[in-house]
Amino acid sequence: MSDWRIVPGRETVAVIPILSFGVIMMLFGSGCATSSGVSKTEALIASMTRGETKDNLALNSRILAMANPDSLAGDYTLGQGDLLEISVFGIEELSKIKARVSSEGFITLPLAGTVSAGGKSAIALEETIKTALGSKYVRDPQISVFVLEHHSHRISVLGAVKKPGVFEVSGPRSVVDMLAMAEGLTEQSDQVVYLIRKATKSPTASEPPGLQPPATSNGKSAQEAVLEINLEEMLVNGRDELNAPLQSGDVVHVPKAGSFFVGGAVTKPGSYLLKGREVTVDQAIIEAGGVTRVADFEGVKIFRENKGQKKQLIEVSLNEMEQGQKGPLVMKNDVILVSSNGFKSAWFGFLEFIRFGVGASF
C-alpha cells in the first residue's frame, strides 16, 4: 500500500536583500546619543530588528534604509506656529517667556534678540539661546525650552506597527519615514499599507496617483480618500512613487494580516498568516508540514465564514490536486481540516502494536 504524503517542495522565490546590522549602523550612525552612550537611532534599529522572522526583517531593514535619518532620530523639530515657553534659571525676568515661531522660523527674546528656531530641536535651540545670552549678558546660563503648542504636522500611524500613535513632525515626511518613526512592522502586519486623507474638492498636483475618494452607495464621494500601497512593491521592487509624501492630518494604517487554521492529520497544526499572498489549500497544508501517514486524501474540508450566513463547507480532494488540478484559494479565517483515514489509522496502529507491544514481550 502506497503512503502518499504532501510534503514541502522547493519553490523559486525572490531573494530579498537584507541589510546587515553593521551596514544600517553606518548609514544612520549620526543619531543623537543618549546618556548611556547609545544613540536613539541605534536603539531604534535594535528595536526594529530584534526577534524578527526573515521576511519581516527584510521589510523593516528596507524601511530603515529608505527613511529620512531625521525620522529615526526621533527628536521633534520646531516649525512655523509652534508656541514655546523659554526660561533662564535664576533670572526671574527671563522666566517662562512665551514665543511663537514665525513663518520665517525665528523667535524674539529679551536680550538675545532674534534667534533662529525653525528646523531645530528644543535641545539645539537651548544651546543657541545659551550662546546668544552667554556672549554678552549672563555667565553660563541654564536654558530650558518647552513646546506648549505644536502647529507643525500631526500624522497618525495605526495598526500593526510596534509604536502606533499620533506623531508631531515638521518638514516633509513620507510613508516610509512614518513607518520608521513607528519603529517598523510587527510580525502580524499585512503586506499592504493604507494612506487615508481627508478628501478635498480640488486635489493638488502633489497628490499621489490613485488617492481618490471612493463612491458611496448614494453616488456621492466619501469624505476620505484612501490609497492602498503594496509594501513589497514599494520596499523590495523599488517603486519609489508609492512612497507618498504626507500632509498634516494623514493616517497611515497597517492592517493585521489575515490568518487561516490548518488542523487534523497534518504535521504542524496551527494558525498561519496570509501576509497578502495567494495561498491554495495544498500550499496551506504544505505550510503546516504536510499530511501525516494516516491522512485521508479524500477527506479535506474547508470551513469558511460568510457574513450573515452559516459557515460554508467545501470538500477538497488532495488526490486530484496531486494530479495537477489547482486547489481553491484560502481566504481569511478559513479552517482547513484534514481527516484521518480509518483503515490507515487501524493499519498503522496495528503495526505500532507489533513493533512495540509484541516486540517488548521477547
Rank of each mutant, 00 (worst) to 15 (best):
S340G: 10
K275C: 07
V115N: 05
K256S: 10
G105E: 06
F362T: 08
S248W: 08
L179K: 01
P328V: 09
G22Q: 13
S202N: 04
R304W: 09
G290D: 02
E278D: 15
V88S: 08
V169M: 04
S174F: 02
Q283Y: 10
S121F: 09
I336L: 03
N306T: 05
S317E: 00
K54F: 12
H151Y: 13
G81A: 03
F167K: 04
S61C: 05
I86Q: 04
A67T: 04
Q188N: 06
E224L: 11
I123N: 15
V175M: 02
G238A: 06
P255E: 08
L148H: 10
P164G: 03
E320M: 01
K256D: 15
P245I: 00
V330K: 11
P172L: 09
D177V: 03
G74R: 07
L318E: 01
A160V: 08
V147C: 05
S152L: 13
G37E: 02
F348P: 04
I129K: 10
Q323S: 13
F167Q: 04
S47N: 12
N319V: 07
G22N: 15
S144T: 14
E168Y: 11
A117F: 13
P141T: 08
I155G: 00
V13E: 09
H153F: 15
G258M: 07
N68E: 06
S103H: 00
I155Y: 10
V300H: 01
K311D: 02
L227T: 00
G264H: 01
K310F: 03
P209S: 13
S189Q: 11
D282G: 07
G165L: 07
I336E: 06
T49Y: 11
Q283T: 15
R277K: 15
F362A: 05
G9D: 07
V192K: 12
G74K: 03
H153C: 11
V7W: 04
V13P: 02
V262H: 12
V175P: 00
G357S: 15
V300M: 01
M66W: 02
D190H: 09
L84S: 11
A43N: 07
L329D: 14
A46T: 14
I86G: 07
A73R: 12
G219M: 04
V226Y: 05
L109H: 06
A205T: 09
R10M: 11
M25Y: 03
V115K: 01
N218L: 08
G22F: 10
G171Y: 03
P164C: 05
G289T: 06
L235P: 00
S339V: 00
L158D: 06
V23M: 14
V300F: 00
E11R: 15
M66S: 06
Q325I: 15
P214I: 04
D296I: 01
G105V: 01
P214S: 08
E42Q: 13
T41G: 09
H151L: 11
